[in-house]
Design a binder for these strands. Structure first.
Lengths: 336, 336
DNA sequence: CTGTTAGCGCTTTCAG
DNA sequence: CTGAAAGCGCTAACAG
């Protein structure tokens, strides 16, 4: 593998000049810059990260932290897609992507600590946002930069940079979609309000319902115990027989619900994952574009030390993907 | 951050001695080993990877390569789970995990090349196995070590270390399961035979059918064009009205099939993913334990340069998870 | 068994 | 604008 000395020699300059030229230092004359560039190409030179890192104390890698894998959270394709986005952008900008996972909080913490200590990684992307997250504490203690996908849940201190869907708006959009199709008795189904996403989607729903002077109805079910959740839902429906539609906080949940209720019950959900397509009828769902969220997060992470003040949060627009799970009560002919 | 010099100073030895002691070099006396160890702990010293890498030409990180994300392959939770296994084992052994993804072959190749060139990563895990894979060629050209999850598809040269499910046996098990429940006209549904997994599962199925002197019936459908695939399947069923059961190469595919056929059609599939649980009726499926596959792969990858000859392949046992998608034709009372 | 020395490949003062 | 030299933190000869 060619080193910078080789390049320098071939270009007839000193290694330091070559280094400067390659990194675009403006003091280098156009002429020598060109010579060096040609030599680089000829030798197919690429810098050695380890050496660069050692000299710079900047190790071109960004750490991506997945949530703890409780209750099969990994079944959500969101994460891999976000990862794909992060990876694409990072590679483009000469960064590598290392990942931290864990099936317990402790394992995840160990993993992150390892990246911090041995890997000297100093920029991270959190693929989730959660109240009182010890991972965040660890990151802060080590003065590592981090950005979060989702709305940061800070108990204290300045907000980190973040990128997010406007989940409140997504919640209102979902609800409005149902209203526009004649639904009035709409319920909201979720699994866990400590996840900020769900909390916000619910808030959006409630906002619209209040505005329309309709009653908000929400139900928490995680389907860890399938039969029990099943019963709850059935019971809920008996208590609220007028309900014609549900907003569910996620496709997976939407599918679960679909299996319990009548086909005539309308459902709109979030994430537009594979699940929504295989549902029957296919679920109308709000796509949040995980790949874009990933790309944006990577960009934020790459800026982390450049600007002194945190960059503006990025909001990625969402989009309703209309399928067949919402019945139009106002004009039956439009049903597809 | 403490360096090895600090440790050496505190222990009253030279840096090289400290280094030797820390790395367990047997020439160091027990006494000084202890001194150094105490100093290390006192200073909370951890080696700097970059420096180690530069000196050793061994950069404690293992590259994990995901398949190209064609047609929503990322929806398969298999990958994230395997990643989890890899990560757990790697961290345990002081390695970091970097990942390569791509939505096109080119993007993936760029990503891997980047890891090779800049990152100087020299051990990889391939999360898939495919005929004529240019990624493999790239790895070989660069003399990087790699292990594969799945059966390596080599056109030439020695087999790399690998870890796999015995997919032929899994195929025979699935088929036998159906036979034992009275099914005789069994078809096999798959998406892509260039994936070795599918090829082998099919082979297992065919083997048993031949053994029983029954006809093998296979159908390829990828459901990229949903309506078209739908038609094909319907057509297929008309042509083969006696078919009472299907083996499908994956849960996702099983679920697709389930939506087209009658409830009375029996289905057994592979991977035991979330999908099989949300199906209705829930799919009987063969679990291949992705986390274990990941762990084993990591272990193989960590041994890569230690042994001159490739280690024995590891086979991870699979297991049928019985749910409700297979009708028992011999004793209807047993149907659950 | 341990210390001295050189060097991994790169960047960055510091002098010109 | 460019070159010489030192150093990032660690390891591996080479001597003792």
């Amino acid at each position: 593998m060619a080193t910078i000395r080789d390049v320098a020699r071939l270009a007839g300059v000193s290694p330091s000049t070559a280094s400067r030229a390659l990194r675009g230092n403006p003091v280098i004359s156009g002429k020598t810059r060109k010579k060096v560039e040609t030599a680089r190409r000829q030798l197919n030179y690429v810098p050695n990260f380890s050496a660069q890192n050692l000299a710079n104390n900047e190790n071109n890698t960004i750490g991506v932290i997945l949530p703890v894998d409780h209750h099969e959270i990994f079944n959500n394709p969101f994460f891999l897609q976000a990862l794909q986005g992060i990876n694409a952008k990072s590679t483009e900008r000469n960064f590598m992507v290392a990942i931290a996972t864990g099936i317990s909080e402790q394992q995840l913490l160990d993993n992150v600590e390892f990246m911090l200590a041995h890997g000297r990684i100093n920029r991270f992307i959190l693929l989730y946002s959660q109240i009182n997250d010890p991972v965040v504490t660890l990151l802060q203690e080590n003065q590592a930069g981090y950005v979060v996908i989702g709305k940061p849940a800070m108990s204290t201190g300045a907000l980190p940079p973040y990128i997010d869907t406007d989940n409140i708006a997504a919640g209102t959009d979902a609800t409005n979609f149902l209203l526009a199709r004649g639904h009035r008795h709409i319920a909201f189904l979720y699994t866990d309000l400590s996840k900020i996403v769900q909390k916000e989607r619910l808030a959006g729903y409630q906002q619209i319902m209040a505005q329309q002077q309709l009653d908000s109805l929400s139900l928490q079910e995680d389907f860890i115990d399938y039969t029990r959740s099943n019963q709850h839902v059935t019971q809920f429906l008996q208590q609220h027989p007028t309900v014609t539609a549900f907003v569910t906080s996620d496709d997976l949940l939407g599918l679960r619900l679909q299996q319990i209720v009548h086909k005539s019950m309308s459902i709109i959900s979030f994430n537009n994952s594979f699940t929504s397509q295989v549902a029957h009828p296919a679920l109308t769902s709000i796509d949040v574009f995980p790949v874009k969220l990933g790309e944006g997060a990577a960009e934020l992470a790459l800026q982390l030390d450049q600007t002194l003040k945190a960059p503006q949060p990025i909001i990625v627009p969402h989009q309703i993907i209309v399928r067949h799970s919402v019945v139009n009560l106002t004009a039956p002919k439009n049903i597809k």
